[in-house]
């Protein structure tokens, strides 16, 4: 018989090995992230003081867009080749398998963006105090982006040209994370404590972790019949 943990880790392992065979695709969101941030000094001002003022917001917005860009693929590929149906016909609880897919997806899209962000902080002259809350905040924030985004990705899985619609559906839901995330960095830069804001961000990701897998599993059951 299949086991719960076997199925859970099996899904993660398989999604990771698929991602490793398309390594080029892995880099795309990162380059997107980099290019968007490069546009900021070009379009506004290369002056370090002005850049530093915009840095937290710009990095967060580009991180949001980069993860959003990759969200499309969370279920779509599996739907197209039919393996999503096989996943859904597993006797194991679907929400758990969906969670496994979200984790694998975050590892290959969210985590690289997080790891890349200090470089962009440097490029945008983010003051030193801002780096720790930026990294920590992005870890929690990108997790929420993937978790809530999974619901939207599941709903639009069978739709052609679902990606613009997907952004439309999930971006309003990202508002609180963006607010908390940027203000944590801003507070650190201004020399204030950011523990409280970070706690709210942590609460938001814990809450998404509780709710999103179930909602996404339900959404998949609806979405595949597009």
């Amino acid at each position: 018989m299949t086991t719960l943990s076997g199925a859970f880790f099996g899904v993660i392992r398989r999604d990771l090995s698929i991602a490793m065979r398309h390594r080029g695709d892995l880099l795309n969101p990162l380059f997107f992230f980099l290019i968007v941030v490069t546009l900021v000094p070009l379009s506004i001002s290369p002056e370090p003081a002005r850049l530093a003022a915009m840095a937290p917001g710009m990095i967060w917005i580009s991180a949001l867009l980069a993860t959003l860009l990759a969200l499309d693929n969370l279920f779509q590929d599996d739907f197209t080749d039919g393996s999503l149906v096989q996943l859904m016909l597993s006797p194991q609880p679907l929400w758990l398998l969906v969670l496994a897919k979200i984790i694998a997806h975050w590892l290959v899209t969210g985590l690289p963006v997080v790891l890349f962000s200090p470089l962009l902080g440097l490029m945008l002259s983010l003051p030193e105090e801002g780096f720790a809350p930026l990294l920590l905040g992005l870890v929690l924030g990108t997790a929420v982006f993937s978790l809530l985004g999974a619901v939207g990705a599941a709903l639009t899985v069978a739709l052609h040209k679902g990606s613009v619609l997907l952004s439309l559906l999930v971006m309003p839901l990202y508002v609180p994370v963006l607010i908390f995330g940027t203000s944590a960095v801003q507070r650190a830069v201004d020399g204030m404590s950011y523990g409280g804001v970070m706690a709210m961000l942590a609460a938001a990701s814990a809450f998404s972790l509780l709710v999103a897998p179930f909602a996404a599993a339900g959404a998949l059951k609806v979405g595949i019949n597009g």
């Binding site: 619901v151 709903l155 309003p172 508002v175």
Partner: peptide, 24 residues
């Protein structure tokens, strides 16, 4: 399908609205 999908999205939105309002 459209009705079910909208219901799910509306529910997720409802859970989020208080958080969005508070954060704003």
């Amino acid at each position: 399908t459209s009705t079910r999908a909208c219901a799910i999205l509306a529910l997720v939105g409802t859970v989020n609205i208080p958080i969005i309002y508070k954060s704003v």
